[in-house]
């Protein structure tokens, strides 16, 4: 069930248009994944929306791989009503590196990117209002990073705002 290389017309067109920015295309459990260069994510997304008719941003999220040189995967799931197909754009990102925001391509990206920033500390360049969304604004740390222990919390915040020693 290992991922197999994907080589269809869509990937061909992407490669012609963006060259080396399209790193790899694979098929995992019959689902298409295209690995792209982080800095060109916005351009590629816009092309997918306008030319390839992937008109809906389904989801945007991240995965943390702390032992890798570039620790984050940013994952963008797109859907095309016309083709009835999904595609996942994936990009590798080091800690502290910026990734272009997709807010101007899809307004739906706004809250999704805020959640990614909140949970992983990934900064989306050009986001109009990048602040925490689920956690309190003053909270320290990004809980979905692998080095954030499940029992860890911002004890200073809890003490100050809830008046208790521990929330657990």
């Amino acid at each position: 069930m290992a991922p197999v290389p994907l080589d269809n017309e869509f990937v061909e067109r992407l490669k012609v248009k963006f060259g080396n920015a399209i790193r790899e295309a694979t098929l995992d459990r019959k689902q298409a994944i295209v690995n792209v260069e982080a800095m060109r994510l916005r351009e590629i997304s816009r092309y997918c929306r306008d030319e390839e008719k992937f008109d809906m941003l389904v989801d945007l999220t991240a995965v943390d791989w702390p032992n890798r040189e570039k620790r984050f995967d940013v994952i963008v799931i797109l859907y095309s009503f016309q083709k009835n197909e999904r595609v996942r754009l994936k990009t590798h990102l080091g800690d502290g590196e910026l990734v272009p925001s997709l807010c101007e391509v899809w307004p739906a990206a706004n809250w999704l990117e805020r959640e990614c920033f909140d949970m992983f500390g990934i900064v989306f360049e050009g986001h109009p209002n990048l602040k925490r969304i689920l956690l309190p604004e003053e909270w320290e740390g990004h809980p979905l990073r692998k080095d954030y222990d499940i029992l860890k919390q911002d004890t200073a915040w809890v003490r100050e705002n809830l008046g208790i020693e521990s929330g657990q």
Partner: peptide, 9 residues
Amino acid sequence: PPPGEVYHS
């Protein structure tokens, strides 16, 4: 599950 990823909705 074998290593890999899936999206299902």
